[in-house]
Amino acid sequence: MGWTTEDMPDQQGRIALVTGANSGLGLETTRALISRGCTVLMACRSARKGEAARSQLLGSGAAGLDLLELDLSDLTSVARCAREVAERYGRLDLLINNAGLMAPPRMLSRQGYELQFAVNHLGHFALTKALLPLMDDRPQARVVTVTSGAQYFGVMAWDDLQGEQRYDRWKAYSQSKLANVMFALELNQRLQASGSAVRSLAAHPGLARTNLQPVSVAATGAWQEALAYRLMDPLFQSAAQGALPQLYAATASEAQGGEHYGPSQLGGLRGAPKQQPVARAAKDQNLRQRLWTVSESLTEHHSAAV
């Protein structure tokens, strides 16, 4: 059977921020956390979609839900969101870096960075750094960064991180997902070295049915991808099942900093959460440090002092 939301420990008195909380994995993560008494800050790009999701959850009897506007493609919005959390709550127990984009045509963020790298990695990097002071003294405080199986195909194009010379939307996606797990591991190492009790973990959902796939197909009109998704449909698990690895990483007492969780069956495509290996490049401390340094230089002018 494996671990399910029924096995989640009590979350009364805890505050979690979930990015991309209005749909897919984020919505299911929010639903599970509030079922255990957690107060969840739903950080969403669209206030309208966020409010619709919040109303749906409140309609099913949930309490402890707040809505925050967060556009991860705009570092000014990231800084504003972090300040709002500090002013409204002054503390944070869980940060789940869940939101993401998958394989759109090449577009740029507000600051001029390639959109997938900006949203999937840089926005979460800046948000995490800004919110960490609020997590410092909280028991069992954790940061969970959601990656994907695409990390195993990812290559950091150090000389062309923004895809200016050559852009392949799937390579850019895989690069951003590799960056997620590199960041999660490097963050945990730095937290431990500084004596912080906050822990950083990574998780991936396997093949989960979310709006990432249809949005990607609609943005590019790629009929081949639409066909591939239809053929693979029997392998897909629900968004609720796909959210289990990140929920396990966020709440299970056995989960430790620096670990990476994904589904346990079919090579990590589906099933109950289990610790999974990370991409080889993510094990290289020199590469992780290089990514950290680059990320700091790309985000430093927009950081939020909380």
Rank of each mutant, 00 (worst) to 15 (best):
E186M: 07
R110T: 14
M182N: 10
F125Y: 10
L207T: 06
K129P: 04
L212Q: 03
M135W: 00
D137W: 10
L185I: 14
Y152F: 15
V181S: 04
L101D: 01
N120E: 07
T145H: 14
Q151P: 13
E114F: 08
V155D: 14
V143L: 12
D160Y: 13
Q189H: 12
N188Q: 15
R142L: 10
Y113S: 03
S200Y: 07
S174E: 05
A172H: 00
Q213K: 01
F153R: 15
L115A: 10
Q151H: 15
F183G: 04
G123C: 08
H124M: 05
Q192H: 15
Q189R: 15
A179S: 11
T145Q: 15
L131G: 02
A202M: 09
L108R: 13
S176D: 01
L131V: 04
A193M: 13
L212H: 01
Y173F: 09
T128S: 03
L122M: 09
L132V: 05
Q165M: 11
P133D: 06
Q111Y: 03
A202W: 03
F125R: 03
R142W: 03
N120R: 01
S194N: 14
L108S: 11
S194C: 14
D159E: 15
E186W: 06
L191Y: 05
G154F: 09
M102I: 08
L132Q: 07
Q175L: 05
S196E: 09
P139H: 10
L108D: 11
F153C: 13
A157P: 06
S194W: 05
T128Q: 02
L212W: 00
M102T: 10
N180G: 02
L134W: 00
A193K: 13
L132K: 06
Q116I: 06
A208N: 00
Q165A: 15
Q162P: 06
N211G: 12
A197D: 12
E114S: 03
S216K: 00
L134A: 06
S176T: 02
F183R: 01
L101H: 01
A197Y: 07
L187Q: 05
Q189S: 15
A126T: 09
